[in-house]
């Protein structure tokens, strides 16, 4: 499976983002024979609910299906390629919002979608979370999608691997302060779950008010691909980028079989599910209502829109 990762960079004018991303997909598809192109979380630009971005409401969010999916469906058909529409802030018919990733097949049909299950920051107030972690059966085999912060709750990738996903696609946004730990955790997750991972992240920056203080959040690219045996590709931290990797479903599945010459299978093969009731318990240190705190913080925030 030949996979292209498109690392986008937010434009000063967010209405331009979709066209630049379209051109990047066009470019990476030229002569590459790709099976799949992955776009980052927020490839349309910063979410309106991020600090200081309230003026983007209606600009970087979209209906699904809607004009963005229509545009990329045509591109998928043209290049006969699957496209993961990273994730988008989806405006729901009832006025609510979701952080949603959509998978298009080579005919441009929607064959899968995933809503972020573990909401991050202001999303705990604004976004409706997904309520399931499911594998998508498609021409490329069993794929999983984990939207950004879903990666950081390791139960997500674990469940996808156990449900048979050979590759998990992760549209995300790299926080600059975490890069080294993030890259290593990515590699470790691929090994421990014996799964291929594909990660696409944008480059960009926002400023705004959070908790009464001016803050700056830098999204530092660093798109990644890994097999269970190690890191395969890494994107730049400070500019748009394109990566192409070959990933093998068969290799993953063969590594999951018990064998004497390799022990990658152990992470899944030595499991004892009957002993894991503890994963159904909450974290004992969880003593605050973060939704209420976030709601209060958002209500005290005044928009300031610099990007």
């Amino acid at each position: 499976m030949k996979v292209g990762i498109v690392q986008t960079q937010w434009r000063a004018d967010p209405t331009e983002n979709v066209f630049f991303v379209y051109d990047q997909v066009e470019e990476i598809c030229q002569g590459m024979g790709l099976d799949l192109v992955c776009l980052p979380e927020f490839f349309l630009g910063p979410a309106w609910y991020m600090p200081g971005q309230a003026d983007l409401k209606g600009i970087t969010d979209t209906r699904i299906p809607g004009p963005v999916t229509t545009l990329f469906r045509a591109l998928a058909r043209k290049h006969r390629v699957h496209i993961l529409l990273g994730s988008m802030v989806e405006e729901l018919p009832d006025g609510g919002y979701c952080n949603t990733a959509v998978l298009l097949d080579r005919q441009g049909e929607i064959v899968g979608r995933a809503h972020k299950v573990h909401a991050f920051a202001n999303e705990v107030v604004v976004c409706r979370p997904g309520n399931s972690v499911d594998v998508i059966d498609c021409e490329l085999g069993r794929l999983g999608i984990a939207v950004c912060s879903d990666f950081w709750v390791p139960e997500t990738i674990r469940m996808l691997a156990l449900k048979g996903a050979h590759t998990v696609l992760i549209p995300g946004g790299s926080l600059k302060q975490n890069l080294d730990a993030m890259i290593n955790a990515f590699r470790a997750t691929a090994f421990l779950n014996c799964v291929n991972l594909v990660y696409a992240s944008p480059v960009g920056e926002i400023t705004g008010i959070r908790g009464g203080r001016q803050i700056r959040v830098a999204f530092a690219g660093t798109s990644l691909a890994a097999s269970p045996l190690g890191l395969l590709a890494r994107g730049a931290e400070d500019r748009s980028d394109s990566l192409v990797v070959d990933l093998s479903a068969e290799h993953v599945l063969s590594l999951r079989e018990r064998r004497a010459d390799d022990d990658t299978w152990q992470g899944l093969g030595l499991r004892r599910p009957e002993a894991y009731g503890g994963v159904l318990e909450g974290f004992v240190g969880q003593g605050r209502d973060l939704v209420a705190e976030t709601r209060t913080s958002m209500s005290q925030t005044t928009a300031s829109g610099a990007r």
Partner: peptide
């Protein structure tokens, strides 16, 4: 985040 944002009601497949 990975400890606080969990949704244990979804994790039955792990057991």
């Amino acid at each position: 985040f990975g400890l606080w944002a969990r949704r244990p009601e979804l994790y039955a497949p792990l057991t």
